[in-house]
Nucleic acid binder design. Structure first.
Lengths: 158, 158
DNA sequence: AATGAAATGATTGGTTT
DNA sequence: AAACCAATCATTTCATT
């Protein structure tokens, strides 16, 4: 969890390249950063074990999979005690509509990013899975018009 | 953009498997779904061209890269006209601290997910890049205590 | 951290259904 | 048009230095 991993310039360069294309071969990585392919493999393995690299993820388009509407739900869970919020989190994570969940400071305790079929599906989700629960004090629904990815986490070289 | 891609059971099964591990080999995919490796390659290529698969992404831990504090900024951009919001979006996307950007319905026009070094960095970001801008009418900052990924976009088999 | 050999996987073209 | 097979080519991985 803590920042106990040391990253040298070679590690950073490898991460920068993989960030742009997670399927870059070790051979190409090696050529780009100036070490042997086997060394690249070593580095990446270490970065994975160290928790810097969390995983290789496939990004899918929800709209192409029949989930054309996305929304953010701002949820108040009251009383805000462990015995209520722990099961709440697990329930929300298990919903097939959920994409991401945040525990926040501020008036709303949680933000839930959901992808649904359409307005009807969203209405059902809000009512049946959120407002109908005793511990859910309030839900505010905000539709997502559009969303953008931003630049890479690692800036392009020092 | 539109949902013009037809997905048969083999496509769905391939997506389900790749969703769990984006580096599953074509050989393993083939064995799991019961077709030839070359067919798997064909399928995946088609899914990429069809826009169902948007890309292979490396997930990194911001905390391990010295960005231990994440926050969501709720931003009002007024007046909410194209000539103001288009450059706003591009400016926000270009900030090294930005991770994701959403255009929303509701009282706040945009939600910006940022990862910063710490509170001082966040303060600087909010003041220098947001509230100091004429078109930014309001910024509400919510810290992220914790965040979770949710289940796969594609449910585990029909 | 590099080397090079062995093992594994990706990809292509020709062929079949 | 889509799937398969088998051969080729590229990449990964590991033992060794």
């Amino acid at each position: 969890m803590t920042d106990s991993v040391v990253l040298d310039p070679v590690d950073l360069e490898i991460l920068r390249l993989l960030q742009n294309d997670a399927r870059t071969t070790y051979r190409d990585l090696a050529a780009a950063v100036g070490v042997a392919p086997s060394t690249c493999l070593d580095r990446v393995t270490r970065l994975r074990r160290g928790g810097v690299i969390l995983g290789h993820e496939l990004r899918l388009d929800p709209a192409k999979l029949g989930r054309g509407l996305e929304a953010l739900l701002l949820v108040q869970v009251r009383p805000h005690r462990r015995e209520l919020i722990t099961p709440f989190v697990e329930r929300v994570r298990a919903l097939p509509e959920s994409r991401a969940l945040f525990h926040l400071t501020g008036p709303d305790d949680y933000l839930v990013h959901v992808a649904v079929t359409g307005a009807t599906d969203l209405q059902r989700l809000v009512i049946d899975e959120f407002t109908s629960r005793r511990e859910v004090a309030r839900v505010e629904t905000r539709l997502i018009f559009q969303q953008w990815d931003c630049g890479p986490l690692l800036p392009p070289a020092a």
